[in-house]
């Protein structure tokens, strides 16, 4: 399967449509309940986001018009990606999302070394011992720099696993 420009344009239009829908939904519900959806500039918190959303609507419509009727279709079909091309970035994002999800529960130290290791595997590297060494080195040196010099407290997770350097 090939992902073409048309599909992507549809996707980005849908993205803006969702954003605009959220704006109007929030104005109609939450902001109206709080009493900030009407009145002058002092009390009306809805007028400005509403105007910006309308501007986005007009601009996206303008872009669709340009794409449909004016722009040439000649270069449009370049830079295509197949689903196969997207396998690695998709894996990367999923692994990264899982990492961020686990971070709070397992803490920095138990999750970060595996993350680095797995990303290098996704990239296609296969020398396991070397990768493991690099992963441990990177994870701990980053933790040391941030915790020791910048006084950041990295997430300890449910085990409260923090290293007092």
């Amino acid at each position: 399967m090939v992902i073409n420009a048309k599909f992507l344009n549809w996707l980005v239009t849908a993205f803006f449509a969702v954003i605009i829908a959220i704006v109007f939904q929030q104005i109609a519900t939450s902001m109206t309940e709080q009493g900030i959806a009407s009145g002058g500039p002092y009390n009306n918190g809805a007028a400005y986001p509403r105007s910006i959303s309308i501007a986005i609507m007009i601009l996206v419509a303008g872009q669709i018009f340009v794409d449909q009727f004016i722009a040439s279709n000649a270069q449009k079909e370049s830079n295509l990606h197949t689903i196969r091309d997207l396998r690695r970035p998709a894996m990367l994002l999923i692994i990264f999302a899982v990492y961020l999800g686990l971070l709070k529960f397992l803490g920095y130290h138990l999750t970060t070394t595996p993350l680095i290791f797995i990303i290098m595997l996704i990239c296609g590297a296969r020398s396991i011992i070397k990768l493991l060494f690099v992963a441990i080195l990177v994870a701990f040196s980053f933790a040391f720099i941030f915790e020791e010099f910048l006084s950041v407290v990295l997430p300890g997770g449910i085990f409260s696993f923090n290293i007092p350097w």
Binding site: I119, M120, C123, V138, F146, L150, V152, L154, P155
Partner: peptide, 19 residues
């Protein structure tokens, strides 16, 4: 090579943002 760079940048993104 890039396979070192990608995890390092992502880690910097996440610790930095957390900090």
């Amino acid at each position: 090579p890039k396979f070192y760079l990608i995890p390092i940048v992502l880690l910097l993104c996440s610790i930095g943002t957390f900090a």
